[in-house]
Amino acid sequence: MTDTTNKTPAQVLAPDVATPEVVPAQAPKQDKPASLWSDAWKELRRKPGFIISALLVILMVVMAAFPTLFTSVDPRDCSLIDALQTPSAEHRFGTDLQGCDYYARTIWGARTSVSIGLFVTFFSTIIAVALGSLSGYKGGWLDSTLSRFTDIMFAIPLILGALVILNALAGSRGILQVSAVLIAFGWPTMMRLMRSSVLSVKELDYIDAARALGASDWRIITRHVLANGITPVIVYATITVGVIISAEASLSFLNVGLQLPAISWGLMINTAQNRILAFPHLLFFPGLFLSMTVFAFILMGDALRDALDPKLR
């Protein structure tokens, strides 16, 4: 009932994916019938939006995993004498208030953002898929209980809920705490998506066929229901990585996210906020990297949705 009407902003980005059951696994003029994903891959390879976003995502992931490939400067090696320099040959992105090399800090910032984005999305998706498929497949009181619980978590907007908890955790906020809070408020939308997707898949004939052949519930869920119902969740999860990265930066900017000496783009802008008008480079570089990373994941989710949604073909 309310599933149709309650949409989070990111769901609006992927509005048409909740009907995976109509996906025809066909490619008429071929010997072997192509699967949904290989069909999608063929289309994606030709889409400039997907190629751009994939390259950006790879660049950011490599930057997060091996920051030393991009800079040999230690981001924590700072000298106050060099404070607040504008970009120059020596410091490509200038320096910050403490005289740290801003280029090195911006590069190292990718590690925090990308790892929080992927970590939070991974665990939220696991929770959402587990609860959503259980709820949708089993139905009955289990479905009612899980759905009402999801309604409750859904009723607290992400930034507000995270703000209350993280504010109470003052003094001990690290990557782990911030991630845990983002996971706690990150899964409900995907759970609803998974549930409605499972509800539409489980009525199909091949599920009956599998049951008639004597397959156990576990086998039906893992082999048939999940395989055919998870597509919209994957599209949404891709977008979620971007949304979470943006949320972490916003929380750090609001002083309830990561704390120094952590290196995070949101924290860099927070520290610089009173000097932005005089030294715009303090805003520009972390802001640019942050926006590019979020852009890459959202664009990729968008391209995936276009390729996987049969209605748009």
């Binding site: 980005l13 971007g242 916003s250 802008i269 932005i276 926006s291 979020v294 664009l299």
Partner: peptide, 25 residues
């Protein structure tokens, strides 16, 4: 389509400071 994704991707505090810097100052 592309410009909406671009706008969505810029976190609101970055957008706010940008607007303040360019349109305001």
């Amino acid at each position: 389509k592309v410009s909406t994704v671009a706008v969505i991707s810029i976190p609101i505090f970055v957008l706010g400071f940008m607007a303040q810097l360019f349109i305001g100052v």
